[in-house]
Design a protein around this nucleic acid. Structure first.
Lengths: 141, 141
DNA sequence: ACCTTATTGATAATAGATATCATTATGAAG
DNA sequence: CTTCATAATGATATCTATTATCAATAAGGT
């Protein structure tokens, strides 16, 4: 593993992800930390989220549909759903045969597959309610 | 369906996607059209790719891992692999039980799932060769 | 205490895509 | 054919998420 020094900033980043209810974006993490440690830079948060992910200490839900990436205190492989309206990420509980996909092959010669992601799309409660005109602007996730 | 007027630009966009070998990005499409119709604007290409997709005339492989979206002359639901080095998209032939996923539910109350994408990650021939130092800069996909 | 270098904070830069807006041109109606 | 409302265009500015740059700081082994 890469040589890392222990910094306050990285530990705060780790703790913020770990204690966040759900799947924080980099900006969510930044805002949480800022409240306690106001001089932290957003670049530092991005760097530390990446290094924590590299070290396997946190999970990462990569950016899809142009939305931000989200982070996860769970590090095991599981499925996520992304809200197509706002990019919110939630867990999905679905059992399937991973081996089937691990043995899939691409249709192009020379393209070697390494992994797969099963990503669900949908509408989160907040965005779904807005659509129906329930006037739920105030709902916080 | 939305009221659309027939324009040369939109038909050129459609033809470019349809005749492109593989999965062109918006920029790929733009470059193809530019060679014949040099005054077309990139904004127009983006707009037309979106409207053609809305109308179900072309397929769209959404942006993942921060890479550009790609377009597809196939409009049926099938799987893709994305090169984690360069973002290239290729088809993957894998059979699976779509119903299983269509019946999955999110772990958060109020989040309603509408569809899913099975996305593979890997390394395309070009990037894979580069890695091994085969000096294949010139390979064109 | 010293010194190498990982890390930081501030900021600029990047990529992909959308928003804006004055101008153009489509195509239905007269 | 003209007329005309408005969809579409081209040029450009703007946006968002993220990474790159770089001088200054600080971690931690010696």
């Amino acid at each position: 593993m890469k040589d890392r020094r222990n910094t306050m900033q990285r530990e705060l980043t780790y703790e913020a992800v770990f204690s966040y209810p759900g799947h924080p974006s980099a900006d969510d993490v930044y805002r949480v930390i800022s409240s306690r440690y106001s001089t932290i830079s957003k670049a530092t948060v991005y760097r530390n989220l990446n290094s924590l992910y590299e070290d396997g200490r946190i999970g990462k839900v990569p950016s899809v549909f142009g939305y931000e990436a989200h982070y996860d205190h769970r590090t095991d492989h599981h499925c996520h759903a992304v809200c197509i309206k706002c990019g919110k990420v939630v867990d999905v509980d679905v059992q399937y045969d991973k081996d089937l996909f691990d043995n899939a092959v691409s249709m192009e010669e020379g393209f070697s597959l390494s992994s797969h992601d099963l990503i669900f799309e949908g509408t989160c409660r907040n965005c779904g309610n807005k659509e129906k005109g329930y006037g739920t602007e105030g709902i916080k996730d």
